[in-house]
Design a protein around this nucleic acid. Structure first.
Length: 811
RNA sequence: GCCGACGUGAUGAAAUUGGCAAACAUGCAGCACUCAAAAUGCUGUGGGCGCAAGCCCUUGUGGGUUCAACUCCCACCGUCGGCACCA
């Protein structure tokens, strides 16, 4: 027999599978469906990471397992191809992003194929191709027509030196990623998607559309991921309360609502704060005695970077608005008014009532500016620190004596009755900012006409193609502005000269619906046909990195809910079951890093050990969801295992199943089946090893047993399994076989191992026949020499007996 | 600061969900095969005491519940992730 030569046999079978279309999406009309999906990769220049291989191996094992079990399986792969790195590379080198991306995709695809993953490449898609992004543009227009896409002024990250807007990811730590100069906030007209319309459940034309919060109850996702989404949405319940602002000297009076989660503490409110950006401040200008100081502070705030403004270590600052007083609606008391940058313009109403006794931030501010602190909930020492717990109310008139919950109900009722307030709900989440002043993305299909205003590009003119002839040097505006052909157009409505929107869409827009396209990737009339959607969606199992716990997953859910509302799909959640693969770290336990040279190149590993060994190694490292350091040494264990399988295949003879191995086989079928269903691939592999270790002790192995073992091995090490399968003279691929079933009778034993404890400590174990009564078992245990010694003649006080497991004798 | 996850041999880990702690693998040591090496096979491998049979201790630390705790509860320590002035 020749030596096990992975590169040779792996290439051979990869070619064979492709030719025989073995990975084609299932189409048996009688069989059930399963849609198994990986988060599609961004094809970066550095090629496939071992972390990609981890999750792709997991889904591949599972997809192959399901095919063995007779399911029609949809298991596609594609490219999240738009994005910043390719564009930044273009700025540096002048190489066009489409070139960079094309090359990267080639590398990724070669590497993926070299791993033997069973993707149906017929369904491959690429978000940067017009065939795909025309539908991204149509989604944009669909949202626009339904009032879910709109343009408004917004603060964005801006780098003065580079003269460009930065994405949040590029402004990390408040500094420009490229030149390290501080990022400031700038007001620019931006496009938004109204994701906030889909937070709560809603009814639409008799249909219930579950919201982004409610839908989480219906999916099998890690609890921590659900929690992260809930926190991101940040729902809070409280009340809107009307305050009056009085200009003392001029007699001006204005009304303003504030949002609070603690209306029960209204009697403890000792001052009022506006966010520095609040528009009412300008309206009150004439009443403010120290306008110069106020302007100065507002200007300073404007110039602050986000980092400086949100630095929790620094002292709270603010300026009192001289000449103004706010009127507390519960008691008519006059309190001072401030502006302070710890109050944010874009949460609530941009103004707050301050209750220093029972709010940390207000307490800090009050300390610094010497403002009164009135205790209204008993239990703490508010002169030393704010008291945030529950307790009886004091100094609160009709709320006195009530606890937090009761006081809350009472005050809200009171405010409602007096028309001074109302219950209210607030969220942290904002609408999704989707426009980017960037080149390498899907163009926003809008035209601006002096006469007609915003005009959507007519359907017949889609896609709005990305022009190729652009200058990538950063200028402060989208590079698309500098392509005259692209930018200068005629208004589709009135024909007069107009300009095209030059911003592109956030790449997250492209990735918010790609899983729908796989159902029907060649459709020219729709993003996917209804029949295909009905057949394959929603996604049954979705695997990808934990870095997407909020953004991508939230956006995709938003898209699905919009489509459900308007009748395009009949499901509410796109991903039924979600799992995250843990990061594969460098051997030293830190993140793999290019500059430190700790990145493992899968090509090298495949060349040395083969794809099957790499697949199994990554699965054997530990539980899928755990972060785990890469181990170069460890892979030899899997390599040895595969070689042993190879060598054992010499021992195969045609004969009746061999009694020594038949039990081991059926135990293995049971364990591997259960473990794969639970994504516990590491322990499934150790069971395969146990079987092989037992087989190694036999002189011969019967073919019937060996064939079943090969099927169990096949999802993990498809190349070797197929090679050995065909070596047995089989003409049809192993991947056309049925998954073996275990026979419980063959696993069962006539005896069980009784663990005997004395006072809860393990003292002896004996084989006991099954079916004995408790009394008989107990007698056997007490008869044991060792146990007698431990009992030392004492009578047992009681015994605990767990049938077929253990007996515990307490003396 | 808040929220979450985790902590088991030299190492990656396992433990039927409360029932023999350390399966499987790596590493290490010894032996066999070999002129030798590699490969392979076998044996051993948590710590302590003991010639041995065996005994005691051990799942970050301390306490608790239980006949029985890696597993449940409380407090603390440590590591890693997410959010971060959200009123």
């Amino acid at each position: 027999m020749p030596k096990y030569n992975p590169p040779k046999i792996e290439k051979k079978w990869q070619k064979y599978w492709q030719e025989k279309e073995l990975h084609k999406t299932g189409f048996d009309p009688k069989a059930g469906k399963r849609y198994i999906l990986d988060m599609f990769p961004y094809p970066s220049g550095s090629g496939l990471h071992v972390g990609h291989i981890e999750s792709y191996t997991a889904t591949d094992i599972y997809a192959r397992f399901l095919r063995f079990n007779g399911y029609n399986v949809l298991h596609p792969q594609g490219w999240d191809a738009f994005g910043l790195p390719a564009e930044n590379y273009a700025v540096k080198t002048g190489v066009h992003p489409s070139e960079t991306t094309k090359k990267a995709i080639q590398t990724f695809k070669r590497q993926i194929n070299s791993m033997g993953f069973s993707y149906d490449w017929v369904r491959e898609l690429n978000t940067s191709e017009p065939d795909y992004y025309q539908w991204t543009q149509r989604f944009f227009l669909f949202l626009y027509r339904n009032g879910l896409a709109y343009k408004k002024k917004a603060k964005v990250n801006w780098c003065e030196k580079c003269q460009t807007v930065l994405a949040n990811e590029q402004a990390e730590g408040g500094k420009c990623e490229r030149c390290e100069s501080p990022v400031i906030q700038k007001d620019l007209e931006q496009w938004f998607f109204k994701i906030t319309d889909f937070i709560e459940d809603q009814n639409y034309q008799g249909k219930k559309i579950k919201g982004l919060l409610g839908g989480l109850d219906d999916v099998d996702w890690p609890e921590s991921t659900k929690l992260a989404q809930r926190n991101w949405i940040g729902r809070s319940e409280g009340a809107m309360v009307k305050f009056k602002i009085k200009g003392k000297s001029v007699g001006v009076e204005k009304e303003i609502e504030i949002y609070t989660t603690r209306p029960d503490t209204l009697f403890g409110c000792t001052y009022f704060v506006f966010s520095p950006e609040h528009p009412m401040i300008d309206e009150l200008r004439d009443s403010i005695g120290n306008w110069g100081k106020v302007e100065e502070y507002r200007e300073k705030t404007r110039k602050k970077t986000d980092l400086e403004r949100t630095d929790l270590a620094k002292d709270k600052t603010g300026v009192r608005l001289n000449g103004l007083a706010a009127i507390n609606p519960v008691n008519g008391g006059e309190i001072p008014v401030f502006i302070a940058d710890y109050v944010l313009m874009d949460y609530g109403t941009g103004a707050i009532m301050a209750v220093p006794a029972h709010d940390e931030r207000d307490w800090e501010f009050a300390q610094k500016y010497n403002l009164p602190i009135i205790e209204v909930l008993q239990g703490g020492a508010v002169e030393k620190e704010p008291y945030l717990e529950d307790g009886p109310h004091i100094n609160s008139s009709f709320l006195d004596g009530l606890n937090k919950e009761k006081a809350m109900t009472k005050i809200i009722g009171w405010l409602k009755e007096k028309k001074l307030g109302r219950p209210a709900i607030n969220y942290k989440i904002r609408d999704w900012l989707v426009s980017r002043q960037r080149y390498w993305g899907a163009p926003i299909p809008i035209i601006y006409c002096k006469k007609c205003g915003q005009v959507p590009v007519p359907e017949k003119d889609l896609p709005v193609k990305l022009p190729k002839d652009v200058n990538f040097m950063p200028t402060g505006e989208s590079p698309l502005k500098y392509s005259k052909k692209f930018h200068q157009v005629r208004c589709p409505q009135c024909g007069s000269p107009a300009r095209r929107e030059s911003d592109t869409m956030d790449t997250f827009v492209c990735s918010s619906w790609y899983y729908l396209r796989y159902a029907d990737p060649k459709n020219k009339k729709e993003f996917a046909g209804r029949k295909a959607l009905k057949k394959w969606l929603p996604v049954d199992v979705y695997i990808g990195g934990a870095e997407h716990i909020v953004l991508h997953l939230l956006y995709s859910r938003f898209f699905t809910k919009v489509l459900q509302k308007y009748g395009w799909v009949d499901f509410n959640e796109p991903f039924l079951k979600l799992r995250h693969q843990g990061a594969i770290l460098a051997e030293n336990g830190a993140k793999m890093s290019k500059s430190k040279g700790t990145v493992v190149n899968p090509d090298d590993v495949v060349a040395e050990y083969g794809a099957d060994a790499l697949r199994m190694h990554e699965m054997f490292l530990g539980p899928l969801e755990d972060a785990k350091p890469w181990s170069t040494k460890g892979i030899v264990g899997l390599s040895r295992f595969l070689e042993k399988v190879w060598r054992l295949s010499q021992k195969i003879i045609e004969k009746k199943p061999d009694n020594n191995l038949i039990r081991a086989l059926h135990e293995t079928i049971k364990k591997v089946t259960q473990d794969v269903e639970l994504f516990k691939f590491n322990t499934a592999i150790s069971q395969l090893m146990i079987f092989i270790n037992k087989s190694g002790k036999e002189n011969v192995i019967s073919k019937a047993i060996w064939e079943k073992f090969l099927i169990l091995l096949a999802p993990f090490a498809p190349h070797l399994a197929e090679e050995l399968w065909s070596g047995l003279g089989n003409k049809v691929s192993i991947f056309r076989q049925k998954w073996p079933k275990y026979d419980q009778k063959l696993i069962q034993k006539e005896t069980w191992l009784m663990i005997i404890q004395v006072n809860g400590k393990f003292r002896n174990k004996i084989e006991v026949k099954k079916g004995l009564t408790e009394k008989e078992v107990k007698e056997l245990a007490l008869a044991s020499e060792k146990i007698r010694k431990w009992l030392n003649g004492k009578e047992p006080k009681k015994t605990i007996y767990i049938p077929e497991r253990l007996i515990n004798i307490v003396v």
